[in-house]
Amino acid sequence: MSSSSTTTTTTRLLMLKASDGVTFEVEEAVATKLGAINNMVEEEGSEDLICLPNVNGKFLGMVLEWCKKHANNNTNSDKGNDEVNKWWDKEFVMDLDQNTLYHLLMAADYLSGTELVDLLTEKVASMIRGKKVEEIRETFKIKSDFLPGQEEEIRKKNSWAFE
């Protein structure tokens, strides 16, 4: 059923070239889930080959995997679509290691994939929620740059938040 719906319309194919030269052939409807690509495609006389010097192949591939899933789910007019997307998103971010998460977020932001940025920033937020200051610093490799006493003062003002 799903194959017949895709063959009836001729879709434009785009070539996306990552910083390391890896190329991806993607349907326009999939790639335009990314705001940056959408803007380029909408320009008159745009070419089918788009170079993306700020994203490498590994992360571009992951971003496109997400786009493909969402583009497919959205053409399906099932009522449970939102639920499917949510479930799939959960799976997508579940086992991401921190390094991948960081690069993926940078790639999604660079490509203006608003929904994907939402998903990834929410994932990062969930790693901060309810954590102690020391744990947050450790997770994100942040060094405290407060002068002696400054941090204590902030803590004192909102002591309830540290209970």
Binding site: I128, K132, V133, R137, I142, F146, I154, F162
Partner: peptide, 8 residues
């Protein structure tokens, strides 16, 4: 409120 203490 806790995140205020992470860094400047």
């Amino acid at each position: 409120m806790r995140c205020k203490c992470v860094c400047k």
